[in-house]
Amino acid sequence: MKSWYLVYCKPRSETRAQQNLALQQIETYLPTLPQQITKSGKTSVKRLPLFPCYLFIYFDPLEISVSKIHSTRGVSRIIGCREEMTAIDDAIVHSIKMREAKLLNALQLSSDELPGENDEPALVVGEKVKFIDGPFKDLEGIFEEESGDKRCHILFEIMGQQKKVSVPRVSIKAV
């Protein structure tokens, strides 16, 4: 039966893996986080992977060989692939897709409508934070560090592992 699985890709090879899996008729989903970039006075939206080095794939392991996926260019391995593969609930992938779409729509409508960035108090390393916007909305994490003037690193637990994500400062608040 077809299910969603998580693939670990080689560094900066998510798109390559996605293209090569598509050639094998395997459905993929690469969650991205839109980021506004201003260069030479022009503002554009660039989409960065939400989970760097990770890609969701939708296939049936009884129809398509796992070794075929492991040998695909850009793919390193399937997460949780030992004796019995760990499928990901469709609701999780659907939720990420919906939140990604909402964030992209909000960013395209008006960058001025995002939560204010001037009134935010400074965060302390190790402080609990809550996502107020974006694909992780309403989830909690731990503030790790500032990353540039408008982004920061947050630690949070997903699928039983602690992961670090880089998010816009305006999308989190102290708990």
Rank of each mutant, 00 (worst) to 15 (best):
G80W: 12
L55Q: 12
Q161Y: 02
P115I: 05
F143W: 03
K163D: 02
A122Y: 02
A106N: 14
G41S: 03
K10I: 06
L104C: 09
L104M: 12
R169N: 14
F143G: 00
K163M: 08
L114M: 08
G148M: 05
I158Q: 09
V167M: 05
H94Q: 14
E83T: 14
I78V: 15
L109E: 15
I142D: 00
Y8D: 10
T86S: 14
L103G: 04
R82M: 07
K97E: 12
V175L: 11
I96S: 06
L123R: 05
M1V: 10
L48R: 08
E63N: 09
T15A: 13
L103V: 01
D119R: 04
P34S: 04
A91C: 03
C152A: 09
V170E: 09
V7T: 13
K128N: 07
H153R: 11
Q35W: 05
Y58G: 12
Q36A: 13
E27P: 01
C81Y: 13
L62G: 03
F136Y: 09
G41R: 10
I26Q: 06
A87Q: 13
T72N: 10
R169T: 14
D60L: 03
V7P: 07
I154M: 04
P135V: 06
Y29M: 06
V125I: 05
R12G: 03
L62P: 00
N20P: 06
K163F: 02
L107K: 05
P61N: 02
S44C: 08
Q161H: 10
D112L: 06
K163R: 12
S95E: 08
H153N: 10
S171G: 05
L104Q: 09
S44T: 15
F59V: 04
S67W: 11
D90F: 02
E27L: 08
T32Y: 11
F156H: 03
Q161T: 10
D119K: 00
L139Y: 05
E157N: 06
Q108N: 15
A122Q: 02
K68M: 11
K68Y: 04
N118K: 11
D138Q: 10
D149T: 08
P31H: 05
S111D: 06
K128G: 00
R47A: 09
M159R: 11
F156V: 00
R16L: 15
T28C: 08
S44Y: 09
T86H: 12
I88V: 12
V75R: 05
D89L: 03
P121Q: 08
Q161D: 08
L104G: 07
P61C: 04
E100A: 09
I88W: 04
C152W: 00
Y54A: 02
N105R: 13
F56H: 08
G126N: 05
G160I: 03
G126Y: 01
M98E: 15
L155V: 04
V175F: 06
N20G: 13
V75M: 08
L107C: 11
E100D: 08
H94E: 15
E120W: 00
A22C: 03
I26L: 05
Y8Q: 11
G80A: 11
R47K: 13
E100L: 01
P11A: 04
L6G: 01
V75D: 12
P121V: 01
D112Q: 09
A17H: 04
C9D: 06
Y5E: 13
R82A: 07
